[in-house]
Simulated scan of single mutants.
Amino acid sequence: MTANPTDTSAVQGRTLVAKVAEDIRAQIAKGRFKSGDRLPSEAQLTQEFGVSRTVVREAIAALRSDELVEARQGVGVFVLEPPARTRRVFQNADLARVSSLIEMLELRTAVEGDAAGLAALRRSPGQEEKIFEAFDAFRTSAEKGEPTAETDFAFHLAIAEATNNPRFAEFLHALGPAVIPRRAVAADGEETVLPNADMRRIVAEHEAILAAIQNGDEDGARAAMRSHLKNSQTRYRSILRAPR
């Protein structure tokens, strides 16, 4: 089906807004802009990022909604004190327990399924390359029999970032690499070693997700991700029922 040019333009606009907002957010996090500092003017930001004023305004609006900056009439936009930390999300999730582990996998199935579909539609060439590199690192670790939780998480995070909706990446960052089940269920906090046949299936599932994203297949990417995470639920129900 041929894409509607208007839809493509809208997606590109959302992508630019997300990129500018994330870049400014990162600069605040790294200390380039500290609490109380005034951000560069709208004209300066437009020139710095090579985007329109509309994109800059929407990016600033996103930062305002996150309470990172505030606009002062006639003065400019200023960086705010970081908001007080609230109770850490998911802090009651004990991922060593089958109930919490399956709950998180069900939640990830819902969220990451849509993330994969959006990544298939919105990814940039650079983001697609990052997904491929993460998959290649994961596959290499698996083939060598090395721990794969970190590279597995990096693959899922690269897909979340390729949605160009920062909330998906924030969701995974809130969970962290420990949400990868074979690390979560290990008694020593390292990583449960899976049978070679299981690891080959997991690599194949990741490859199916990658292929669908590279082909721009929204429905296929969503289905491949959901299948992978549902299969994970089945795998880890079996592992957690076995003597440990």
Rank of each mutant, 00 (worst) to 15 (best):
42 E>Y: 14
42 E>I: 04
46 T>M: 14
36 G>W: 02
60 I>A: 02
19 K>W: 09
90 F>Y: 09
96 A>Q: 06
91 Q>P: 00
28 I>M: 06
27 Q>D: 15
27 Q>M: 13
31 G>L: 07
31 G>F: 09
17 V>T: 10
57 R>P: 00
99 S>Q: 06
46 T>V: 14
58 E>C: 05
85 R>Q: 13
43 A>Q: 12
107 L>C: 03
98 V>F: 05
57 R>Q: 09
49 F>Y: 15
62 A>Q: 12
63 L>W: 11
33 F>I: 11
109 T>Q: 06
108 R>W: 02
21 A>Q: 08
85 R>I: 07
111 V>T: 04
80 L>G: 04
65 S>M: 09
52 S>R: 12
44 Q>R: 11
98 V>Y: 03
33 F>W: 15
107 L>Y: 00
19 K>D: 10
60 I>H: 02
19 K>A: 12
110 A>H: 05
107 L>V: 07
25 R>I: 04
25 R>Y: 07
53 R>N: 14
64 R>V: 11
68 L>E: 04
51 V>F: 07
54 T>D: 08
80 L>H: 08
99 S>M: 01
60 I>E: 01
62 A>W: 14
42 E>G: 15
49 F>R: 02
29 A>T: 09
21 A>V: 07
81 E>R: 05
90 F>H: 09
98 V>H: 06
19 K>C: 06
32 R>C: 03
72 R>L: 14
91 Q>C: 05
65 S>V: 12
59 A>T: 08
81 E>Q: 11
44 Q>T: 12
32 R>P: 06
83 P>K: 08
95 L>G: 01
109 T>S: 08
89 V>M: 08
93 A>L: 07
95 L>T: 01
99 S>T: 01
22 E>P: 00
108 R>A: 00
29 A>Y: 09
93 A>Q: 06
23 D>C: 08
102 I>D: 05
27 Q>A: 14
46 T>L: 08
55 V>H: 04
55 V>Y: 01
60 I>Q: 03
104 M>H: 05
79 V>E: 02
20 V>N: 03
47 Q>N: 13
64 R>N: 07
82 P>H: 09
109 T>C: 06
41 S>L: 07
69 V>E: 02
108 R>Q: 11
62 A>R: 15
95 L>E: 00
49 F>C: 08
71 A>Y: 13
94 D>E: 13
86 T>Q: 13
70 E>R: 14
110 A>T: 02
76 G>P: 15
68 L>R: 14
110 A>L: 10
84 A>N: 10
97 R>F: 00
79 V>F: 03
80 L>P: 00
42 E>M: 12
38 R>Q: 15
